[in-house]
Design a binder for these strands. Structure first.
Lengths: 264, 264
DNA sequence: AACGATTTGTTCGTATGTATC
DNA sequence: TGATACATACGAACAAATCGT
């Protein structure tokens, strides 16, 4: 009652979208701003303020020259974070995509030698500024940009024989398997940290997110350890939060634990 | 160059906040809208549009009558999702909070009997509309609202002796331990699904999030199974995404895997 | 307690640009 | 090309919150 008009209008429209059954289904077009001006007795700017609220909440999207439409979100891509502690995630990415009947792909990696920033140095337990190899992947599913991944390896791995780490080419068998074969250092465990934050400019461009940064991204940092509990890599993967979902299994979870995909 | 003016202004201000060292540190006040009008040669509405972008990205917050300030985010609370597959999360919540030197608390639970909605019925493998017990907790850390949790238990557990499930009082030893003791059904595994979405009205009010819904929430759904792989509960926990972080450990992760808390 | 100054919040009007059909 | 619909930008007025006097 005491709310400003633009918020009352937004709440009214939200009700029409979220009611069961929805009065405005996904994909449906909202009345134009001019029509809404008449319906709610408000000016165009006030109507637009209300619609901005709905955009921020991800309920609608606007297309210049066309109109305002209720969003229908795509099927989220589900990734399982728990798995064989000795396996790298590139293979897991490919396997899971195929499991869901989707087509994974990725570009050739970007490989750089860098001085370790503080967060990288802390995770790898090396001095700040010590040299590390950074390998950066851009991955797609069904042709749409899906994740940005950067792995940091301590230079000691290269010195002990894992020379392909510093070559700007994909390692088909996966970096984890390659390191085990090349210098006998085996991944034995890993720890993931899952956070959500706003995207930066690169991420907005790559994922084609709305420019105002209202869609956030998952940032998953994986620190992997060898059998002597020494950290052997830090992998940071960024996913758009609106198209992804993660699963963690603990104990012997029954296999038909597949959740039904909510059709959008 | 071709960007609209409000976006160029926002980018310029963002640079002053994100540069290293920041020209505008967390907690610092931005120039007033009137000052920015003069500085950028734009109208007040255009300045306000730029500031709205920064608000959406979580870089600044406005306080009516005071000004616009660079946000300093609190230390995230870290929860570990992997643990003993036989333990419930209430005890884990309390232990982890104490580990970080913080004070956990929660209100008496709200207990309801409900017909299972489709998602609940699917997870518990019972018919849609079958009766379930819903137990809803509101939890706090250091006095600030931290999570909303609802657990759904199939009525069969009550029929087999777990009568305290339907009493509107906390189960001090934890519901999982209680069920094991009361009717011999032991939790043997669980599967978590982690997603991010916009908050609803209840969540905005409880977590005191900005009313326009730009801060999203984690929704973690845990389906727990007994030793016969039958689902015994579905627990949905909602956390504000801006103050929480989750950890998943796979394999025998070394214990000093504690990450340094980035001081804000 | 009252008041005024400052600062952000809401709402209107208007004009022009750009994308789509 | 014209019509439609959203995007950007300006100006103006008043409301509401905050703070100091």
């Amino acid at each position: 009652m005491n709310d400003p008009m633009y918020r009352r209008i937004a709440d009214d429209l939200r009700g029409k979208i979220e009611s069961d059954p929805p009065e405005l289904e996904p994909g449906a077009q909202l009345p134009t701003e001019i029509v809404l001006m008449g319906r709610y007795g408000a000016s165009r700017n006030t109507i637009r303020d209300a619609i901005k609220m709905l955009i921020t909440r991800g309920l609608v999207e606007t297309r210049a020259g066309q109109g305002t439409f209720v969003t229908g979100r795509p099927n989220p891509f589900v990734s399982t974070l728990t798995g064989d502690p000795r396996t790298g995630e590139t293979n897991v990415f490919i396997m899971q995509a195929h499991l869901e009947g989707r087509e994974p792909s990725f570009l050739e990696p970007t490989v750089e030698m860098q001085g370790a920033e503080r967060s990288v140095a802390t995770a790898l337990k090396i001095p700040e500024g010590a040299h590390v190899v950074s390998r950066h992947y851009r991955r797609f599913i069904d042709g749409t940009p899906w994740s940005l991944q950067t792995s940091f390896y301590p230079m000691s791995l290269v010195e002990r024989g894992a020379l392909r780490l510093i070559q700007p080419a994909d390692i088909a068998e996966g970096a984890v398997d390659y390191i085990a074969q090349a210098c006998g250092i085996k991944q034995a465990s890993y720890s993931d940290s899952i956070a959500v934050r706003s995207p930066d400019g690169n991420e907005i461009a790559f994922f084609r997110l709305p420019a105002d940064g209202r869609v956030s991204v998952f940032e998953i940092s994986r620190t992997a350890f060898d059998e002597d509990d020494a950290p052997i890599r830090l992998t940071i993967t960024v996913y758009p939060a609106d198209r992804n979902e993660f699963v963690v299994n603990v104990g012997d979870v029954p296999t038909p634990a597949m959740r039904d995909n909510e059709a959008g």
